[in-house]
Write a protein that binds this DNA or RNA. Structure first.
Lengths: 250, 250
DNA sequence: TTAACTCTGTGCGCTAGCGAACATAAAGCT
DNA sequence: AGCTTTATGTTCGCTAGCGCACAGAGTTAA
């Protein structure tokens, strides 16, 4: 199998803050106050935005990258708590008041993001207007995702979890093409790499995905949704409910 | 084994809002505004405060009961997302803006709570003072607990999870005595009842707990903490960090 | 006292996922 | 070209947890 390499195009497109759905959902007034302070930064694969316990300096608004919130255990194994893309932001603990979290934020799919100095974020947040309420609604969507991850980890097979994970990731990119090795997916799901290989093989056999050396293409998304567990639907429905404005973006 | 029955005493003690750590952490000024609107309600075992998707009318501040946030799957099996006791409140989605959540809130250990009409809560919340910031910090602690539940579900044995669960529950009651059948614990952990029986048997053999027909007594808490996985420590440490004021209560 | 019920204990076969070891194959390097 | 590195495929034995069935044992009700 030979795969296209759309990475180049991703990094040469025009960037603007409104590619992020949360930023896009803000009123012109707030945008005018906030956007001048945004800084476009590259998000290479594997970049760690913060480690567990780090005091955060910035919040990040992804435009075309995916960032995972990952908990790393004492013995080194890991589990993904949630996925963030153009639908959200990294650094809720900055305005939640904790300044740090117990998880690590790591770029799982390269691209770009806008970052904002934490203090600026807090200043706007404390004006108590729409940013506050938007952030809170997003936080609730994130909470839903975390809760559903817990459920999924308990009850569903690797096959189902892989489907859910692919869908959540695809929803946070524009195309049906993921740059991601099975090894990395295994880290995210907190399972063995071999388990992912076998699950991916089964999906391929059913004509749902093609893949090769770090590239995955979903060829039959309806089937993928059908094979996934209810967890994906729950997260999707709740996100859409909580952040309807943000669906209009892009 | 015959067990003491301290339930009676629980329900005849004097009640006051400050038994809830969050309410206790508020300034006298905010307390004076808020407390007149609090209503003491009984929380019998199994009472459902809200179902998935319900619009919430009240937020609940437990004083001496424990409430579980539980996700119930399509096939009826369940998994606990987090535990709330006198350390917190039920109904964050009211001020987060979503009004409802995908989980069910169910009383897991009977007792009392103060409830507050959602609108009153929002009014105070929108004054943008300390209640706002206290609620946000609590929300972050809750997020940590959910995230850690996901991790624990993925990586740890039933034995470890039972230890974690016992510790989290005990921390939210005053004594070392739980009223809880193995069947219910199994529902919370999302595992078989027999699995809990076996794990409990092993804990008993090691002299950590005594139990009989719905009563569990922890006889060696240090050992219990030692047998638990890191997840308990992570949640505890983060909760203490985020809500230090609340530790002073009681 | 007997009966019904609830909670806990135990055994059995089954499967998913684990850990480890190793094979193949594609991509990159010199 | 060959060599190295990285990604994926496959096998094998092992164990935790599952589903099921049923056996006590304590509790409540008649």
């Amino acid at each position: 199998m030979s795969m296209p390499a759309p990475l180049q195009s991703r990094s040469t497109t025009q960037h603007q803050p409104t590619q992020n759905h949360l930023l896009n959902a803000l009123s012109a007034e707030v945008q005018q106050r906030l956007f001048p302070h945004l800084e476009l930064v590259e998000m290479p694969l594997g970049k760690v935005l913060y480690e567990s316990g780090d005091v955060m300096r910035y919040v990040y608004f992804p435009t075309n990258c995916i960032v995972s919130l990952l908990y790393v255990m004492e013995n080194g194994s890991s589990a993904e708590i949630s996925v963030v893309g153009f639908d959200g932001l990294i650094g809720v603990s900055l305005f939640m008041g904790g300044e740090s979290t117990t998880s690590r934020a790591i770029v799982q799919s390269s691209g770009f993001a806008y970052r904002l100095l934490g203090q600026r974020m807090k200043d706007e947040f404390n004006r108590h207007g729409e940013l506050l309420h938007l952030m809170l609604r997003y936080s609730q969507a994130l909470i839903t995702q975390m809760a559903q991850t817990a459920v999924c980890n308990r009850h569903h097979s690797i096959d189902q979890q892989l489907c859910r994970w692919l869908l959540l990731s695809l929803d946070r990119l524009k195309d049906n093409h993921l740059v991601m090795t099975q090894e990395l997916i295994a880290n995210m799901l907190g399972v063995r790499r071999e388990g992912v290989t076998e699950a991916a093989g089964r999906l391929h056999k059913q004509g749902v995905i093609d893949y090769s050396r770090g590239h995955i293409v979903v060829t039959n998304r309806p089937k993928l949704e059908q094979l996934s567990c209810e967890c994906y639907d729950v997260v999707k429905a709740e996100t859409d409910r909580l952040l309807p404005l943000c669906k209009l973006a892009m």
